[in-house]
Simulated scan of single mutants.
Amino acid sequence: MEHISKYLTPEIKLSCYEDKFFKSEVVFDQHMLIWFISGETKIVQADATHTFRKGDIFLIPRNKPATVINYPKDGLPHKTVVMLLTTEILRDFYSRVDVKAKITPVPGIRSFNNHPLLESCLASLIPYFDVKEPFPEGLALLKITEAISILRTIDPGIDGVLANFDDPHKVELVSFMEKNYMFNMPMEKFGYLTGRSLTTFKRDFKKAFNTTPQKWLTQKRLELAHYELAEKKRKPVEVCYEAGFENLSHFSYAFKKHFGYAPTSLVG
Protein backbone atom coordinates (compact mmCIF):
# COMPACT_ATOMS: atom_id res chain seq x y z
CA MET A 1 0.00 0.00 0.00
CA GLU A 2 1.41 3.35 -1.03
CA HIS A 3 0.67 5.79 1.78
CA ILE A 4 2.47 9.11 1.93
CA SER A 5 2.19 11.56 4.79
CA LYS A 6 3.97 14.91 4.68
CA TYR A 7 4.14 16.59 8.07
CA LEU A 8 4.53 20.32 8.58
CA THR A 9 4.37 19.71 12.34
CA PRO A 10 3.09 16.73 14.39
CA GLU A 11 -0.35 18.43 14.33
CA ILE A 12 -0.60 19.22 10.59
CA LYS A 13 -0.13 16.76 7.74
CA LEU A 14 -1.00 16.06 4.12
CA SER A 15 -2.16 12.42 3.85
CA CYS A 16 -2.26 10.55 0.54
CA TYR A 17 -3.29 6.94 -0.23
CA GLU A 18 -2.49 5.84 -3.78
CA ASP A 19 -3.93 2.32 -3.43
CA LYS A 20 -7.46 1.23 -4.28
CA PHE A 21 -8.54 0.78 -0.69
CA PHE A 22 -7.47 1.31 2.91
CA LYS A 23 -9.41 0.42 6.05
CA SER A 24 -8.70 0.92 9.74
CA GLU A 25 -10.49 0.75 13.06
CA VAL A 26 -9.62 3.74 15.14
CA VAL A 27 -10.39 5.69 18.27
CA PHE A 28 -8.64 9.01 17.84
CA ASP A 29 -6.95 10.40 20.94
CA GLN A 30 -7.34 13.96 19.63
CA HIS A 31 -10.01 15.83 17.66
CA MET A 32 -9.21 15.81 13.94
CA LEU A 33 -10.23 18.51 11.45
CA ILE A 34 -10.08 17.13 7.90
CA TRP A 35 -10.35 18.78 4.49
CA PHE A 36 -10.88 16.54 1.47
CA ILE A 37 -8.83 17.33 -1.63
CA SER A 38 -9.68 14.14 -3.56
CA GLY A 39 -10.90 10.59 -3.03
CA GLU A 40 -13.66 9.28 -0.81
CA THR A 41 -13.99 8.12 2.79
CA LYS A 42 -16.70 6.11 4.50
CA ILE A 43 -16.75 6.44 8.30
CA VAL A 44 -18.89 3.94 10.18
CA GLN A 45 -19.80 4.78 13.78
CA ALA A 46 -22.31 3.26 16.16
CA ASP A 47 -24.96 5.89 15.50
CA ALA A 48 -24.38 6.78 11.84
CA THR A 49 -22.42 6.13 8.65
CA HIS A 50 -20.90 9.12 6.86
CA THR A 51 -19.45 9.44 3.35
CA PHE A 52 -17.10 12.31 2.54
CA ARG A 53 -15.74 13.46 -0.84
CA LYS A 54 -13.79 16.26 -2.52
CA GLY A 55 -14.37 19.63 -0.85
CA ASP A 56 -15.89 18.25 2.34
CA ILE A 57 -14.63 19.48 5.72
CA PHE A 58 -15.46 17.65 8.94
CA LEU A 59 -14.39 17.17 12.54
CA ILE A 60 -13.92 13.69 14.01
CA PRO A 61 -14.22 13.90 17.81
CA ARG A 62 -11.77 12.10 20.07
CA ASN A 63 -12.61 8.94 22.01
CA LYS A 64 -15.34 7.71 19.66
CA PRO A 65 -14.85 4.37 17.85
CA ALA A 66 -15.00 4.38 14.07
CA THR A 67 -14.27 2.19 11.08
CA VAL A 68 -12.60 4.33 8.43
CA ILE A 69 -12.52 3.12 4.80
CA ASN A 70 -10.60 5.24 2.29
CA TYR A 71 -10.87 4.99 -1.50
CA PRO A 72 -9.38 6.82 -4.49
CA LYS A 73 -12.05 8.33 -6.77
CA ASP A 74 -12.25 9.55 -10.37
CA GLY A 75 -8.67 8.46 -11.01
CA LEU A 76 -7.32 10.58 -8.17
CA PRO A 77 -5.75 9.37 -4.88
CA HIS A 78 -7.35 9.71 -1.47
CA LYS A 79 -5.81 13.00 -0.36
CA THR A 80 -6.59 15.10 2.71
CA VAL A 81 -5.21 17.84 4.89
CA VAL A 82 -5.43 16.75 8.53
CA MET A 83 -5.17 19.11 11.50
CA LEU A 84 -5.05 17.75 15.05
CA LEU A 85 -6.76 19.90 17.63
CA THR A 86 -4.81 18.51 20.56
CA THR A 87 -5.91 18.64 24.18
CA GLU A 88 -2.81 20.69 25.02
CA ILE A 89 -3.58 23.35 22.39
CA LEU A 90 -7.29 23.44 23.26
CA ARG A 91 -6.61 23.78 26.99
CA ASP A 92 -4.34 26.74 26.29
CA PHE A 93 -6.91 28.31 23.93
CA TYR A 94 -9.83 27.97 26.33
CA SER A 95 -7.78 29.20 29.30
CA ARG A 96 -7.92 32.61 27.60
CA VAL A 97 -11.61 32.47 26.63
CA ASP A 98 -14.60 32.94 28.90
CA VAL A 99 -16.81 29.97 27.99
CA LYS A 100 -19.71 28.42 29.83
CA ALA A 101 -20.51 25.68 27.35
CA LYS A 102 -22.81 22.74 27.90
CA ILE A 103 -20.52 19.74 27.51
CA THR A 104 -21.38 17.22 24.78
CA PRO A 105 -20.36 13.88 26.36
CA VAL A 106 -20.33 11.63 23.25
CA PRO A 107 -20.37 13.92 20.20
CA GLY A 108 -20.80 12.72 16.63
CA ILE A 109 -18.91 13.80 13.53
CA ARG A 110 -19.55 17.44 12.67
CA SER A 111 -19.67 18.31 8.97
CA PHE A 112 -18.98 21.78 7.62
CA ASN A 113 -19.37 20.98 3.89
CA ASN A 114 -17.03 23.29 1.97
CA HIS A 115 -17.34 26.32 4.24
CA PRO A 116 -15.27 29.11 2.62
CA LEU A 117 -13.61 30.29 5.84
CA LEU A 118 -12.45 26.83 6.88
CA GLU A 119 -11.46 25.93 3.32
CA SER A 120 -9.40 29.11 3.02
CA CYS A 121 -7.66 28.36 6.34
CA LEU A 122 -6.77 24.77 5.40
CA ALA A 123 -5.97 25.46 1.73
CA SER A 124 -3.45 28.11 2.79
CA LEU A 125 -1.30 25.27 4.19
CA ILE A 126 -0.91 23.48 0.83
CA PRO A 127 2.04 25.53 -0.53
CA TYR A 128 4.10 24.78 2.58
CA PHE A 129 4.08 21.03 1.85
CA ASP A 130 6.06 21.60 -1.37
CA VAL A 131 8.81 23.96 -0.21
CA LYS A 132 12.16 22.92 1.22
CA GLU A 133 12.34 25.67 3.80
CA PRO A 134 11.21 24.69 7.32
CA PHE A 135 7.70 25.60 8.34
CA PRO A 136 7.89 29.01 10.08
CA GLU A 137 8.10 28.63 13.85
CA GLY A 138 4.84 29.54 15.56
CA LEU A 139 2.80 29.53 12.34
CA ALA A 140 1.32 26.09 13.06
CA LEU A 141 -0.17 27.32 16.33
CA LEU A 142 -1.51 30.42 14.57
CA LYS A 143 -3.19 28.31 11.86
CA ILE A 144 -4.69 25.90 14.41
CA THR A 145 -5.92 28.83 16.51
CA GLU A 146 -7.43 30.35 13.36
CA ALA A 147 -9.25 27.07 12.64
CA ILE A 148 -10.60 26.87 16.21
CA SER A 149 -11.79 30.48 16.02
CA ILE A 150 -13.57 29.82 12.71
CA LEU A 151 -15.22 26.67 14.12
CA ARG A 152 -16.50 28.69 17.09
CA THR A 153 -17.89 31.31 14.71
CA ILE A 154 -19.78 28.93 12.42
CA ASP A 155 -20.83 26.25 14.95
CA PRO A 156 -22.42 27.57 18.17
CA GLY A 157 -22.24 24.16 19.86
CA ILE A 158 -18.58 23.41 19.15
CA ASP A 159 -17.36 24.64 22.57
CA GLY A 160 -19.28 21.76 24.15
CA VAL A 161 -17.03 19.39 22.20
CA LEU A 162 -13.65 21.15 22.12
CA ALA A 163 -13.74 22.39 25.74
CA ASN A 164 -14.52 18.93 27.15
CA PHE A 165 -11.28 17.58 28.60
CA ASP A 166 -12.77 14.73 30.66
CA ASP A 167 -11.73 11.12 30.21
CA PRO A 168 -14.56 8.68 29.51
CA HIS A 169 -16.72 8.03 32.59
CA LYS A 170 -17.83 4.58 33.67
CA VAL A 171 -20.78 3.73 31.44
CA GLU A 172 -23.39 0.98 31.38
CA LEU A 173 -21.53 -1.90 29.76
CA VAL A 174 -24.31 -3.81 27.96
CA SER A 175 -25.68 -0.85 26.00
CA PHE A 176 -22.17 0.36 25.10
CA MET A 177 -21.10 -3.05 23.77
CA GLU A 178 -24.36 -3.54 21.85
CA LYS A 179 -23.70 -0.25 20.05
CA ASN A 180 -19.96 -0.66 19.46
CA TYR A 181 -19.21 -4.38 18.98
CA MET A 182 -18.42 -3.93 15.27
CA PHE A 183 -15.29 -1.91 15.99
CA ASN A 184 -12.18 -4.07 16.01
CA MET A 185 -10.32 -2.49 18.92
CA PRO A 186 -8.00 -3.94 21.58
CA MET A 187 -9.76 -4.96 24.80
CA GLU A 188 -7.79 -2.25 26.63
CA LYS A 189 -9.48 0.36 24.42
CA PHE A 190 -12.96 -1.07 25.09
CA GLY A 191 -12.10 -0.86 28.78
CA TYR A 192 -10.90 2.73 28.56
CA LEU A 193 -13.96 3.90 26.64
CA THR A 194 -16.27 2.33 29.22
CA GLY A 195 -14.31 3.92 32.08
CA ARG A 196 -12.71 0.66 33.29
CA SER A 197 -9.31 -0.96 33.64
CA LEU A 198 -8.80 -4.06 31.49
CA THR A 199 -9.25 -6.34 34.53
CA THR A 200 -12.48 -4.61 35.59
CA PHE A 201 -13.77 -4.63 32.03
CA LYS A 202 -13.28 -8.39 31.68
CA ARG A 203 -14.83 -9.04 35.10
CA ASP A 204 -17.88 -6.85 34.41
CA PHE A 205 -18.24 -8.34 30.93
CA LYS A 206 -18.29 -11.91 32.26
CA LYS A 207 -20.92 -10.90 34.81
CA ALA A 208 -23.08 -9.18 32.17
CA PHE A 209 -22.78 -11.63 29.25
CA ASN A 210 -21.64 -14.89 30.89
CA THR A 211 -18.91 -15.37 28.28
CA THR A 212 -15.57 -13.84 27.26
CA PRO A 213 -15.44 -10.58 25.30
CA GLN A 214 -13.73 -12.20 22.30
CA LYS A 215 -16.30 -15.00 21.92
CA TRP A 216 -19.19 -12.57 22.26
CA LEU A 217 -17.68 -10.07 19.82
CA THR A 218 -17.04 -12.73 17.17
CA GLN A 219 -20.60 -14.04 17.40
CA LYS A 220 -22.15 -10.55 17.24
CA ARG A 221 -20.03 -9.61 14.23
CA LEU A 222 -20.94 -12.82 12.41
CA GLU A 223 -24.64 -12.29 13.11
CA LEU A 224 -24.40 -8.73 11.75
CA ALA A 225 -22.56 -9.94 8.65
CA HIS A 226 -25.15 -12.69 8.04
CA TYR A 227 -27.99 -10.15 8.26
CA GLU A 228 -26.28 -7.77 5.83
CA LEU A 229 -25.63 -10.58 3.33
CA ALA A 230 -28.96 -12.37 3.58
CA GLU A 231 -31.36 -9.47 4.05
CA LYS A 232 -29.65 -6.52 2.39
CA LYS A 233 -27.94 -8.57 -0.36
CA ARG A 234 -24.59 -6.84 0.11
CA LYS A 235 -21.24 -8.20 -1.04
CA PRO A 236 -18.95 -10.10 1.38
CA VAL A 237 -16.07 -7.68 0.76
CA GLU A 238 -18.27 -4.75 1.91
CA VAL A 239 -19.79 -6.56 4.88
CA CYS A 240 -16.50 -8.01 6.10
CA TYR A 241 -14.87 -4.72 7.08
CA GLU A 242 -17.95 -2.96 8.39
CA ALA A 243 -18.75 -5.91 10.66
CA GLY A 244 -15.31 -5.65 12.31
CA PHE A 245 -13.16 -8.32 10.62
CA GLU A 246 -9.53 -7.76 9.71
CA ASN A 247 -9.65 -9.19 6.19
CA LEU A 248 -11.83 -11.19 3.81
CA SER A 249 -10.07 -14.54 4.26
CA HIS A 250 -10.40 -14.46 8.06
CA PHE A 251 -14.04 -13.40 7.73
CA SER A 252 -14.83 -16.23 5.26
CA TYR A 253 -13.15 -18.82 7.49
CA ALA A 254 -14.96 -17.67 10.66
CA PHE A 255 -18.30 -17.38 8.83
CA LYS A 256 -18.12 -20.90 7.39
CA LYS A 257 -16.99 -22.36 10.71
CA HIS A 258 -19.93 -20.75 12.53
CA PHE A 259 -22.76 -21.16 10.01
CA GLY A 260 -21.59 -24.20 8.04
CA TYR A 261 -21.57 -22.45 4.65
CA ALA A 262 -19.55 -19.74 2.95
CA PRO A 263 -20.69 -16.10 2.88
CA THR A 264 -20.65 -16.20 -0.94
CA SER A 265 -23.51 -18.75 -0.86
CA LEU A 266 -25.83 -15.96 0.32
CA VAL A 267 -25.01 -13.72 -2.61
CA GLY A 268 -27.69 -13.96 -5.28
Rank of each mutant, 00 (worst) to 15 (best):
P61M: 02
L151C: 07
G39L: 07
Y94G: 02
G55F: 05
Q214V: 14
S95V: 06
S95R: 09
L117H: 13
V27K: 00
K206Y: 10
N63S: 14
I34A: 00
S124C: 10
T104G: 04
M32G: 02
R221C: 09
K54D: 10
F209R: 04
P168W: 02
V26Y: 04
L173A: 07
L85Q: 03
S5A: 12
E178V: 02
N247Q: 08
L122Q: 05
N180V: 02
V27D: 05
W216F: 10
Q214P: 11
K143S: 03
N184H: 11
Q30G: 08
Q214I: 00
I37H: 09
K102T: 15
P168R: 04
P10R: 00
P10V: 02
F36T: 06
D29R: 15
S111I: 12
A48R: 15
F135E: 04
I69W: 02
V174Y: 08
Y192N: 08
I4N: 08
Y253S: 15
F183A: 02
P127M: 00
S197K: 09
L222H: 02
I148Q: 04
G191V: 01
K64I: 15
I69R: 03
L90C: 07
D74R: 12
M185P: 01
T211E: 12
L118W: 03
F183C: 01
S197M: 04
K235C: 08
T145C: 03
S95C: 10
V171Y: 03
F22H: 14
K20D: 14
H169E: 15
P105A: 04
V68M: 07
I148L: 07
E88N: 12
T49D: 09
G268C: 13
F190P: 00
E119T: 12
D92E: 15
A254I: 04
I89A: 11
C240T: 12
H50A: 11
L151K: 06
G55Q: 04
D19S: 15
Y241A: 11
C16S: 12
Y261E: 15
S111M: 11
L59D: 01
T9W: 03
H226D: 10
E238W: 07
K6H: 06
P213T: 05
K73L: 12
E188H: 12
